[in-house]
Design a protein around this nucleic acid. Structure first.
Length: 923
RNA sequence: GGACGCAUAGCUCAGUUGGGAGAGCACCGCCCUUACAAGGCGGGGGUCGCAAGUUCAAGCCUUGCUGCGUCCA
């Protein structure tokens, strides 16, 4: 083996082997365990959030697969309506073409071609991450079988009256020329203005002052509203206003929606261009005047001079006119929430159009119950509140989109506009007895992408066919996803799956944190702080990184700043850390926190961890290859240390599994790290050396130690495998043939997960090791603090050794000498006078290192004084407690007893160290 | 306006029946010791945001305040 772990050398071949051998397929045996991959957009590339969530899913999948479950990771990609259409449109634009030049059919063909070429990008990147979904079952949301399910669901919901078509105010994206759902609109506070405008009364008796943030919509005003109890205006209610510019007469109405405190207390009402005004318009039977085109330009319903003007241009013109004609009172700066399309970034218009809706209320009920009853569990539990809050106020879902790419709505119209819903024209004709004379035209719109995503849990399992997978893998075990799509996706899957299968889609919902950069900022192209997971795996040169971060930007003005920051942070580029280090980092960061700050330091630390594992394995193999490891029999004599490391392993394994069951990947990772580095490497490997290197060790002892080395390592690789698939497979291939594991498998993936063996839990050995550690650390502490060279062998005297101490000493003498680098160890009888020594305590026993020629008196005094000051503090605290009558009277007996023992221990230590200090002072 | 979250070592974060404050990184000292300098050994560092309350006992429970953040209207 090479001296340094080199991930790039092993990863690709390893993955190809797994995939080509079909190791990702469900075994067909055991308990079903299933995870649904949130289908990434085909247009997407793997970002840190994906990599994080995929790591977690893969760890769970690998763990359960090794546990012997019938494990399926169902994967696939999403057609991502708007996003995909935009990508291909942009390509056309580059050739001076629009999608209209091609026509619908050709354009869709073009998208399929694009998908054929570039759609596999993200799934290739997933492979780099070592993920193990069943690629044979990969689906695309536009595949025939999924499209079929979409139609089926649409038709059934329509037949039940749960899908309807209606003219309503929707969120209209004037750039993309489509309706979007509430969820696709982001409201952000922006600086704007509040215009105060005088509206004259029609009878000439005065005026009323309204305040508005959107003066241009006055062209569509159909009323002015005041609060019914607002005494300032009560006399005016019922009168009419002559609208400036248009001269139209509109009523003054009273409605308690109006906030008398806000602005002037008078609100202009534009039912066709504002959601609240729309509701009020309905309540008061106001006419709705639409003054905008679908591109948000002023339309024919407005005075000619404004027609064709963009909404913002029109705003300027109208304000000018109002001012010129003396209607404008003033303009105040004003912060307001501006709705923008999450894809296009342009201001969304409330716009009157015909759209399709899902009536969600009846679907929501069972979906709420499923979480309330605990049948579905959110982890962390708190997210259920967010879920309930939304579900209890859920609005009908606008599902039609004026796009070309997507599932076309299975609805047909005759020449009278009569709607027929059905799979295709033929079935519609048959169902409704329509003759060939009737001309039918299919609806031009497609469905919201999330409509098909909502069917993911059962459509991917073959629904509407009654397949075995539907029985086995619905519900799936856990959904791993971010809180940002609880509404978009999670809630809708629960509704649809309940509705169409009667089952819940998943039992647990593990909501992960959001990956941010190390300063806690969201990673975004415009901030230039994006990290590509693949770059962390393979490494990247500085120049390439700068290039990547500054090209293709929406706001090129930030490029210089980003370049500077990038050059500063990554002066040497990014190292190749490898997949395992990256995965382990994600696992270790996966606490219950909502925000997870990614840190390069952590990746580096876990890259070092990989290297540690690699080198520990080298050590084990060097000592076991070509040697007798007891694989085929032979007497094994296990040392106390062999028993101890096995015992620690059981504990680590149990802890790991507990944390995994709680979705605490951070704690699970920590337990692995701690065992591997701080127990196995730091202590066990060191303790094995005296046995292996000593000529006095018997064959049975050596065999026992080698047996332990190779088999603990073999178990450890299986334990680590779900988090670190590559390095463990590579090492396991070499280790397994020397170990007691006789399964002839071509990959650790197929091996079974270790099981806790109660018989190997050995508390007695753990006690001995604690004693040994205290002993050795005590010597090292003196050595370190007294600046004694490691090469200098020391002499140790032991005073006040108990019978137990003597037994343990006898058992571990050689190890103590070896690890603490001791010349020799001798026992002082109680009546023997000790020479001036540096002292440390091992329980009641005093461990002394004669100072002569080695240790400076003042330095030792300083060290002891520091110790005793700490002890004093501890004693004071405990004494304070025990002197408190209330504590003694009310605290549980075992707590009191513990405190008493502590005090005794402290006092004994205090006495010994004080004595020592006196002694040294007197030298 | 409503809901939720966060505040612990210089930094990033653990701390789940309330009972002696932890890890990683960074920092300081010694060491190229035959698995590993991407390493070993030792060490320093915290009035757990502030205030009050409950309790024998509070980082942990309750209330209020301050600061930051997210979502919904």
């Amino acid at each position: 083996m090479e001296k340094t772990f080199n991930p790039s050398q092993i990863e690709k071949a390893c993955y190809q082997h797994w995939e080509s051998q079909g190791m990702f397929r469900p075994s067909g045996q055991g308990e079903p365990y299933c995870i649904l991959l949130p289908p990434p957009n085909v247009t997407g590339s793997l970002h840190m959030g994906h990599a994080f969530q995929h790591t977690i899913m893969d760890a769970l999948i690998r763990y359960h697969r090794m546990k012997g479950d019938n494990t399926l990771w169902q994967c696939g990609t999403d057609h991502a309506g708007i996003a995909t259409q935009m990508v291909v449109e942009r390509q056309l634009n580059a050739q001076q073409l629009t999608r209209h030049d091609l026509g619908r059919e050709k354009f869709i063909e073009r998208i399929w071609e694009w998908k054929q070429e570039s759609g596999g990008n993200i799934t290739q990147q997933m492979r780099r991450l070592g993920t193990s979904p069943d690629w044979d079952r990969e689906v695309f949301t536009m595949d025939d079988n999924l499209s079929n399910a979409v139609q089926e669901v649409f038709i059934q919901l329509y037949d039940e009256g749960l899908i309807y078509r209606g003219k309503r105010l929707v969120n209209w994206d004037p750039a993309l020329l489509t309706a979007v759902s509430d969820l696709e609109v982001v409201n952000e506070e922006e600086d704007g203005f509040m215009w105060h405008v005088r509206y004259p009364l029609a009878d000439g008796s005065g005026h009323i002052e309204v305040a508005t943030t959107r003066p241009e919509t006055m062209l569509g005003d159909t009323a002015v509203a005041v609060h019914p109890e607002d005494e300032r205006y009560s006399a005016l209610v019922g009168k009419t206003i002559r609208l400036p510019i248009t001269g139209r007469e509109i009523p003054i109405i009273a409605d308690d929606y109006v906030d008398p405190e806000f602005g002037t207390g008078c609100v202009k009402i534009t039912p066709a261009h504002d959601f609240n005004d729309y509701d009020m318009g309905k309540r008061h039977n106001l006419p709705m005047i639409n003054v905008l085109t679908n591109e948000a330009k002023i339309n024919q319903n407005a005075p000619e001079e404004f027609q064709g003007l963009d909404r913002f241009e029109a705003r300027k013109k109208i304000v000018e006119r109002l001012e010129a004609e003396g209607f404008l009172v003033n303009i105040n700066p004003h912060k307001l929430k501006v709705p923008r399309g999450d894809r296009s970034g342009v201001v969304i218009e409330p716009y009157l159009t015909d759209q399709w809706y899902v009536a969600v209320e009846t679907l929501a009920k069972p979906a709420i119950d499923a979480v309330e009853s605990g049948e579905i569990r959110f982890v962390p539990e708190n997210w259920s509140k967010t879920y309930f809050q939304w579900m209890n106020n859920i609005q009908d879902w606008c599902i039609s989109r004026q796009l070309w790419w997507g599932h076309r709505i299975p609805a047909f119209y005759d020449e009278n506009g009569q709607v027929y819903v059905g799979k295709d024209e033929a079935s519609v004709r048959e169902k409704h007895n329509l003759s060939d004379q009737v001309i039918l035209k299919q609806d031009d719109d497609v469905l919201d992408t999330w409509f098909s995503s909502a069917l993911w849990p059962f459509a991917t399992m073959g629904w509407p066919e009654q397949t075995p997978e539907l029985d086995t893998f619905v519900p799936s075990s856990v959904l791993v996803t971010g809180f940002d799509i609880i509404f978009f996706w999670v809630a809708r899957m629960i509704m649809m799956t309940k509705k169409f299968t009667g089952k819940i889609p998943f039992k647990d919902i593990y909501i992960t944190g959001l990956i941010r950069d190390e300063n806690g900022d969201k990673m975004s192209k415009s901030k230039g702080n994006v990290l590509d997971p693949i770059d962390l795996i393979d490494g990247i040169e500085l120049e390439a990184l700068v290039q990547k971060r500054t090209s293709g930007m929406m706001q090129p003005q930030f490029a210089a700043k980003i370049e500077k920051a990038t050059r500063k942070q990554f002066a040497e580029g990014i190292n190749a850390y490898g997949t395992d280090a990256l995965r382990f980092t994600f696992a270790a960061l996966a606490s219950n926190n909502r925000d997870i700050n990614f840190s390069m330091n952590r990746v580096e630390g876990y890259r070092n961890f990989c290297n540690k594992i690699w080198n520990a394995s080298r050590f084990v193999l060097m000592n076991c290859e070509e040697h007798d490891t007891g694989r085929d029999g032979g007497e094994l004599q296990l040392s106390i240390f062999d028993k101890w490391i096995w015992s620690r392993f059981q504990d680590t394994l149990a802890t790991f599994e507990k944390h995994l069951a709680d979705y605490r990947f951070d704690l699970a990772a920590q337990s692995l790290y701690e065992f591997t580095w701080n127990q196995f490497c730091d202590w066990y490997l060191e303790l094995s050396k005296p046995v292996l290197n000593s000529e006095q060790s018997s064959d049975a002892e050596k065999r026992g130690t080698r047996h332990t080395l190779i088999n603990v390592l073999e178990h450890l690789m299986r334990l680590l495998h779900p988090f670190m698939p590559y390095i463990t497979d590579e090492i396991w291939k070499r280790v397994q043939p020397l170990s007691a594991c006789k399964d002839d498998l071509s990959s650790i993936m197929l091996a079974s997960f270790p099981q806790v063996e109660a018989s190997k839990i050995d508390l007695a050995s753990e006690q001995v090791i604690e004693w040994v550690k205290t002993f050795i650390i005590g010597v090292r502490n003196i050595r370190g603090e007294m600046d004694i060279a490691p090469s200098k062998k020391l002499q140790v005297l032991l005073k006040n050794a108990s019978e137990q101490d003597k037994v343990w000493l006898d058992e571990t003498l050689g190890f103590l000498q070896n690890l603490a680098k001791l010349e020799d160890i001798s026992l002082l009888e109680s009546d023997q006078e000790a020479p001036a020594s540096a002292t440390t305590l091992v329980g009641e026993m005093e461990l002394m290192i004669p100072m002569a020629g080695l240790i400076d008196k003042d330095a030792e005094l300083k060290r002891l004084t520091r110790n005793i000051e700490k002890l004093e503090k501890d004693m004071q605290r405990v004494q304070g407690k025990l002197n408190n009558q209330n504590f003694v009277a009310k605290a549980p007996e075992d707590v009191i007893q513990k405190e008493r023992e502590k005090l005794q221990d402290f006092e004994s230590q205090f006495a010994k160290i004080s004595e020592q200090i006196e002694k040294i002072k007197n030298i």
